[in-house]
Amino acid sequence: MTSAGSTIATRPRVQSAWKRLLLSEYLVLILTVIYFAVMLLIVPEIATADTLLDILSAMMPLLVVAIGQTFVLIAAGIDLSAPSIIAMASVVGASVMTGDNGYASGTGLEIPAGILAFIAVGTAIGVFNGLCTTRFNMPSFIVTLTTMMFFSGAAIWYTAVHTDASSIGNLPPAFVAIGQGRVFGLPISLAVVLVVGGVAHFILSRTVYGRWLYSVGLNPKAAAVSGVPVRRVIFWAFVISGICAAISSILYTGRLETGTPVLGQRILLDVVGAAVIGGVSLFGGKGKILWTIFGVLFLAVIDKSLQLMGLPIASVFAIKGSIILAAAIIDAQRHRLLVRG
């Protein structure tokens, strides 16, 4: 009887411990450390300085676009157009600053003009997504899926108009350094990400807009009754997402040294998955920039470890898809626990 009673008494404590772990904002960081430790036994190269720097460099552009996605997810929406924004901004920005008869070639303002073109493309597409979602009450899934398809094709057409090649190269070395360069051994792109992440964290945690965004994601009707401009809040979430995708495109284009219409073609799963893995809820109203950082780190470590193991691309996608599915299931369980209190 004593043993049975002890077992019964232990169950609530074990369940409580699992519940705390499941709801912990550091769950993904803990899993990353555990996964890294296991991989260290299988592929010791993962702990070398060069490999760790490669992981850090790979994280930077993905983290920027995932930060933008975080805003939309908090508002209980989704932005599937991020890859097409990255591609479209890449070819437009490259066409402005390329040394092969670029629009700003020879003016001395190639890089500022090119970066402005990147941001302008991301902002414009973000505005379009936001207007369609808020003014026409269209589901964000349908709007951004259509946008993704249209601008993916538009990027290919734009490239064909401006060059006979499949991409636009001959970019200024100073621009390429944004994506490839290092200072004191650290990638220059890290400075860009620190600024974007810092501003995003400030908006979410220290501004009225941040509080509005969370309230809209939790309950838009209640937020509207409380005086929150729901449509405006959702609109700006998509604009922010578009701008972040454009900044990410700058980093990706700099890394590749060329503007290409297929840039970002395979990262949609990573963009949404990184945020969800980190703990940003698909149900809206819940998320932090720190969580997104954890999610991106987790995916970057997995990507690098699978590369070092020499697995085929099909296996990589299957493994990452399984991990993101598991993250969605965990998110549903978290949501259920929070609803039950």
Rank of each mutant, 00 (worst) to 15 (best):
W18Y: 12
S248Y: 07
Y35P: 01
I323V: 15
L311G: 09
G197L: 13
V230T: 13
I85Y: 10
I156D: 10
L308G: 07
Q15M: 14
L62H: 03
G310P: 05
G185C: 07
I168V: 09
S152K: 04
H162E: 09
Y209N: 01
A9H: 09
E45T: 08
V195P: 00
S305G: 12
T159G: 02
V276D: 06
P187S: 06
G279M: 01
I34S: 11
V28P: 07
A314R: 10
L256Q: 12
W236P: 06
G169C: 02
V193R: 01
V14N: 02
L213G: 01
L80P: 11
I324N: 03
L256A: 15
R11Y: 10
N219F: 04
T163L: 05
L186M: 13
Y103A: 15
I203C: 06
L204Q: 00
S226G: 14
A82Y: 02
V143P: 07
I46W: 11
L56R: 03
P83S: 11
I329G: 06
A237C: 10
S6N: 14
W291K: 08
I85N: 10
Y209W: 15
V296Q: 01
A104K: 04
F150G: 03
A94N: 00
S167Q: 11
I142S: 01
F283I: 09
G310T: 03
K288G: 10
I168P: 11
I30M: 14
P112M: 09
I203T: 02
L204W: 00
I46M: 13
R135F: 12
K19V: 07
D50M: 13
K286T: 14
I324P: 03
G99T: 01
G321T: 08
I86P: 02
A222H: 00
T292A: 06
I30W: 12
L21V: 12
W157G: 06
I243S: 05
F235I: 07
G114S: 11
A275R: 03
S226A: 15
A76C: 08
I115K: 08
V96P: 03
Y252Q: 08
V96D: 00
V262Y: 04
L116R: 00
F298Q: 10
A328E: 10
A200C: 11
R232Y: 12
I243A: 13
G106Y: 11
I203W: 01
Q333M: 14
K286Y: 14
G284A: 10
P187M: 12
F283T: 11
I323N: 01
A246S: 12
A94T: 07
A76G: 00
T107D: 05
G68P: 06
V230A: 01
Y26H: 15
F141G: 06
V262C: 02
T253K: 02
L63F: 15
S281K: 05
G217I: 05
L22K: 04
L213N: 02
G197A: 15
L62A: 05
G279W: 07
L62N: 11
G169K: 03
I111A: 07
F202D: 04
I42N: 08
A328F: 03
A191I: 15
A165C: 05
A4G: 00
I8E: 15
I46Q: 08
R211T: 09
G279K: 03
L282M: 15
I74Q: 00
M60W: 09
F136K: 00
S81K: 03
S105V: 08
K320H: 07
T32W: 09
I46T: 06
T2N: 14
A120L: 13
V339M: 13
A66N: 08
I85G: 13
G254A: 04
